[in-house]
Structures are given as C-alpha cells and as structure tokens.
Amino acid sequence: MPGWVEVALRSLVGFLLLLIIARMFVKKPIGETSHLEFGLIASVAVILAIGSIQLTIPVSNLLIGLLVWAGSAFFILMLSIKNATIRSAIYGKGIPIMKDGKILEDNMKKQHLTSDELLRKLRAKQVFQVADVEFAVLEGNGELNVLLKKEQQPITAKMLHHPVPKIKEPETVIMDGKILHEPLSSRGFNEEWLKTELKKRNATVENVFLAQVDEYGQLTFDLFNDTQQVAQPTELPLLEASIKKAQADMELFALDTEDKQAKQMYSWCANQMKQVHELVSPYTKSN
C-alpha cells in the first residue's frame, strides 16, 4: 500500500475515533471542561495525530495506547459520577471569593487569583463595581459566578407581583422553504392554515427561510429576500384594541345616559372590561 494512502486512511479513522471519544466524554463547551478532561482529549488527539503520520508505529500499538487513555478517561468519569469526593478532587469545587460584600483575600491567594483577574472576571459578568457584589464564587473550571446585592438586582415581574404568561417553546414549521409537518400538527394547525397565514402577509412557503409558531398560535417568519419587509402579526394587538374600545364605549354610555340603573350597568360593564384587559394585557404584549 502506498504511504500516502495509508496516511490518509489512518488520518480518517483517527478523526472518526476522536470525534466519537470527544462526544462520549465531553458534552459541554471547551471553556467549561475541567483541566483533566481537556488533558485527556488532548492526549488522545496527540496519539491519533502522531499515529496517522508515523507509519513505523504499528496499528496495534496505537490501539493499545488509545484503549489505555480512553479507558482511563471512562473509568475516572464513572468514579466521579458515583463518588462526590473523587468528583471534587478531579473537577474541583466552588471557592467563595466574595462573601457579604467583602473580598476574601486568603481564598484569592489560595486560588492564585489576582485583583486584576477578579475585576476582569467581574466585568465579564457585567459588574463594574465591586461594591455591587454580595457573593461571588470561583468554580472549578475558573468561571466566576456572581450574586448581586438585592438593591442592584434587576427588577422582575415577581417582585412587582405582576402576572406574566407562561413561556412555551416555539415550534419551527418552515425551514429552508420546506414545511415541517410534525411540529405544525403539534400546535394543532395544518398546511392550509399555514399557507393562509402567509398569504395574509404577502408571502409564500417557497420564499420563507424560517418560520415559527409561538405558544399563542402567532406565526413569525424570515424571508430569503432580506430587502423585503415582513408585516408583523396583528391578531393580539387587535384583540387588545377591541377590549379597550369596548371599555371606552361602556364608559361613554354611562356618561351619556340619565337612567341611574343603566348608568350603573354600563359602569359595571366598563369595570369588567378593564379587568379583562388587565388579565390579557401580559399576553397581548408578549411579542
């Protein structure tokens, strides 16, 4: 067998093996892997890379080396899953760097973390003032996680006791100009409904690059032609406008009539429409 053919075959097999091993042991971004995980994958990659060009190394020796390294990685992975002590020893554990708003200098020294690095890691979390931090922990992979002081945390709907709609994953119903029937039917719609909705906004299936249906049944899509403007969905805004108009009409009728009973009835209806508007408002403004 010519040397270049053997190199090509070894390289192809090595690439496939590396892909399989990496998918088995590392299912996270490279920045979140531990030093051990990165070292194991790097070692396997070096073995495969050298073995693909060093034709004097027998394939059997390569397989033995690969088996030892991959087997060791798998063995350590299994141990770490079953034993918390081993898991902490291998992957490390979170070390507090700030507590009660104060920097723990001794822990910083133990982790070889300088003040410049601390400030850089805080800036990566969009924190530019140390005084805003209540608690910070340095994770085993070197990432700094931060808890802001109560007064510095963003206001949430829960803090305001404001009802918000539940979020459900949108379904992609068109991809690359082709209808995906399964997700479309899971939302309770069919192809005819989809084409009708597209036609309302001057689009066809063939012109749509990507289309999704949200939890409220509204269709949003992006066209292949980036210069063409896409009309926004109008169903929910129209619903809110109709409710507000009904409330305004009831209030107007209450002002126009001299009949006390009718005035009381119109005022009650206006109040009911106001409550309906408050209930549906989070949903109509969701987009």
Rank of each mutant, 00 (worst) to 15 (best):
Met1Leu: 15
Pro2Ile: 03
Gly3Phe: 02
Gly3Lys: 02
Ala8Lys: 10
Arg10Ala: 07
Arg10Cys: 03
Val13Phe: 07
Ile20Met: 08
Ile21Phe: 13
Ala22Thr: 15
Val26Phe: 10
Gly31Ser: 15
His35Tyr: 11
Ala42Gln: 15
Ala45Trp: 06
Leu48Arg: 05
Ala49Ile: 05
Leu63Tyr: 14
Ala73Met: 14
Phe74Cys: 13
Ile76Val: 14
Leu77Tyr: 10
Leu77Gly: 12
Leu79His: 05
Leu79Met: 14
Lys82Asp: 05
Asn83Met: 05
Thr85Leu: 14
Ile86Gly: 10
Ala89His: 06
Tyr91Gln: 08
Tyr91Ile: 00
Tyr91Leu: 03
Gly94Leu: 00
Pro96Glu: 10
Gly101Arg: 14
Gly101Leu: 03
Met108Thr: 08
Gln111Asp: 06
Leu113Ala: 04
Leu113Cys: 07
Ser115Leu: 08
Glu117Arg: 05
Lys121Thr: 09
Ala124Ser: 01
Val127Leu: 11
Phe128Met: 00
Gln129Val: 02
Ala131Arg: 11
Glu134Asp: 12
Leu138Lys: 09
Glu139His: 10
Gly142Asp: 05
Leu144Trp: 03
Ile155Pro: 00
Thr156Pro: 02
Ala157Lys: 08
Lys158Thr: 14
Met159Arg: 11
Leu160Trp: 06
Val164Gly: 03
Ile167Phe: 00
Glu169Ile: 05
Pro170Ser: 04
Thr172Met: 11
Ile174Thr: 08
Ile179Lys: 15
His181Gln: 08
Pro183Thr: 04
Ser185Thr: 13
Ser186Arg: 14
Gly188Asn: 09
Glu191Ser: 15
Leu194Lys: 14
Lys195Pro: 13
Lys195Tyr: 04
Lys200Gly: 08
Thr204Gly: 11
Thr204Arg: 02
Glu206Pro: 07
Val208Trp: 08
Gln212Arg: 12
Leu219Asn: 11
Phe221Trp: 14
Asp222Ala: 06
Phe224Pro: 14
Gln229Leu: 02
Thr234Cys: 02
Glu235Tyr: 03
Leu236Pro: 05
Leu236Phe: 09
Leu238Ala: 12
Ile243Glu: 09
Lys244Gln: 10
Lys244Ala: 12
Ala246Cys: 08
Ala246Tyr: 07
Ala248Lys: 10
Asp249His: 07
Leu252Pro: 00
Ala254Met: 12
Leu255Ala: 04
Leu255Ile: 01
Glu258Val: 02
Lys260Met: 08
Lys263Cys: 01
Gln264Pro: 00
Met265Val: 13
Tyr266Gln: 11
Ala270His: 02
Gln275Asn: 06
Gln275Phe: 05
His277Arg: 09
His277Met: 03
Pro282His: 04
Thr284Pro: 04
Ser286Val: 00
